[in-house]
Nucleic acid binder design. Sequence first.
DNA 1: TTCGATGCAAAAAGTTTGCAGCGAA
DNA 2: TTCGCTGCAAACTTTTTGCATCGAA
Lengths: 146, 146
Amino acid sequence: MSLLDRLRGRGRRVTAQRRVIAEVLDGKHVHLTADEILRRARRRMPEISLATVYNTVNALVALGEVQPVDVGGRVRYDPNVGAAHHHLVCLTCGTVRDVYPRGRLSLPKGERGGYRLVGQDVVFKGYCPRCAGAQARGRPGHTWRP
Amino acid sequence: MSLLDRLRGRGRRVTAQRRVIAEVLDGKHVHLTADEILRRARRRMPEISLATVYNTVNALVALGEVQPVDVGGRVRYDPNVGAAHHHLVCLTCGTVRDVYPRGRLSLPKGERGGYRLVGQDVVFKGYCPRCAGAQARGRPGHTWRP
DNA sequence: TTCGATGCAAAAAGTTTGCAGCGAA
DNA sequence: TTCGCTGCAAACTTTTTGCATCGAA
């Protein structure tokens, strides 16, 4: 069942804009910010607006079709919600990779402080090959907010 | 060696404002936003400004004395940097607890995609006793951004 | 025909910056 | 005396909202 069908099934309307945004978000290793989604969507539909991008991704997040990933104070949208996974973020450029770590973490009852647990987010931090290389060659690069 | 001594040792100046902010941040389970730090600091020094709070916490973060914790699009400042720990966040009110999970995660080399790893952030998500109670009693409550 | 979606612009919210004056070292 | 820090206000960035209009179902 496609993402657009799920919108329809929930009484949401499928418009040309939403179709374009769904296409931009289609893929396995996609982690775009709202602004990046807008830029890519505009290649196909120049008059699309940022408000529509937010409206649409928020609807997709509400449907559980897309997962928001908070990375350095910016939200990126990850359509890979089928398989549980974590994220590896480049501290310099903010690029995100999906990763499947070994081992697992559990929170002992005594550590839960009465909280009812519903999930966990794991973010590995590091430097991507391109940024690590630039760093080794002495170039400062734009530093990303932890 | 106190936090203020460390500022001094790095050629940074210790002012009355910084002393007040350091006192506000003193403690074991402190996870305050910039705004909360400002409000508490103003109880002792009403003329202190938000810019000074940011200036000071940024200096403390640069010294490694305080750890920024990005929680739902807001930064909270955690002075507990001595012991490695993770965080448990309430999805309704944003309250943060330090936690010490069992087990560990490692990222197999094949999963690293050439990134040089430098750390990881783990955030457990759940509902604190107060918010879980309100939820069970049918009160909606303000929902916090994932 | 209806009512959700769009585009635009303005508003929020959080954080940073420019600048003249202050004051710790 | 120096130069980093302060307070204020303005700038910035990201996200949300108000509103008249449009158009999918």
